[in-house]
């Protein structure tokens, strides 16, 4: 099938999906605002020195992006954390790009044509699989450490479990959606760009499972993702955005 007629995603964004998206994003924003309001009640000085931009930049690269401080402690913990972080950020970037193109750019635009009909969609295929697998690999290590090996230093409260469960569910349901999508013959010639999704697709087909439940899975994936998004400011995932701030501020203060 020609690239111009084939649509990268054939699940149409319905009014219901938009509604759920808006609710989730609003809840997330409300959560962020209530947290910021709480922080603003702290009146003591936050910084005792002028912000050192060089130290901030250096620390952002070494400690936030590459997480060298965790690597110094343990390779396994670094691998786990790095995979979850990079995987999550990669998927967030992919989803954000897709959402931006589908909602804010015209169907005839270069971006929409390229990513939804042209070669750009192959980039999205590989991108989603690589970052999705990376995140799931990190989550697998986290689950093994916390619930199987029961590493001594880990003390589990509901907050820890909730985030792990939601992220794992997002990752797995994403691959299941991808597997069902690739069962459509229109993707036959490009399906292996989604190497992991296609492998799962073939396994499901071999087990006699067809794409009938595709819509239900997409909805499940979307709802779990929206719960995760709405829950971010109240969950452990909040540290993904907050911890880097503390890391670079501390580096600046001690520079």
């Amino acid at each position: 099938m020609g690239e111009t007629t084939r649509m990268y995603l054939y699940f149409e964004a319905t009014a219901a999906l938009y509604t759920v998206t808006v609710i989730a994003v609003l809840l997330c924003i409300a959560g962020i605002l209530t947290t910021l309001a709480l922080w603003r009640q702290g009146k003591a000085r936050s910084l005792h020195r002028t912000l050192n931009s060089a130290a901030v930049a250096r620390s952002f690269i070494t400690d936030v992006v590459f997480q060298a401080q965790i690597l110094k402690i343990s390779f396994v913990r670094w691998l786990m954390h790095f995979c979850i972080f990079i995987g999550f950020m990669g998927l967030l970037a992919q989803t954000s790009l897709m959402a931006f193109i589908s909602h804010f750019s015209a169907p005839e635009s270069f971006l929409a044509q390229s990513f939804f009909h042209g070669g750009g969609s192959r980039v999205l295929d590989v991108w989603g699989d690589v970052f999705g697998l990376t995140m799931l690999f990190g989550l697998a290590i986290a689950i093994i450490r916390r619930y199987v090996v029961r590493t001594r230093q880990l003390e589990t409260i509901a907050k820890d479990t909730t985030s792990l469960v939601l992220l794992t569910a997002i990752g797995l349901s994403g691959f299941i959606c991808e597997a069902f999508r690739l069962m459509d013959p229109q993707y036959a010639d490009v399906a292996w760009y989604s190497f992991a999704g296609m492998t799962l697709s073939q396994l499901l087909q071999a087990a006699g499972i067809g794409a009938a439940s595709y819509t239900a899975w997409v909805w499940s994936h979307a709802v779990i993702s929206f719960i995760f998004i709405a829950f971010i400011p109240f969950s452990k995932a909040w540290h993904i955005f907050v911890s880097p701030i503390e890391i670079v501020l501390d580096a600046s203060e001690r520079a």
Partner: peptide, 24 residues
């Protein structure tokens, strides 16, 4: 009286990843 803390210190409470390295 949380006004005695700084905004950064209130942020730090959220920044803890609960990794437990401190407990070691």
């Amino acid at each position: 009286p949380i006004e005695k803390l700084s905004a950064r210190q209130l942020l730090e409470l959220d920044a803890c990843t609960r990794c437990g390295e401190c407990s070691n």
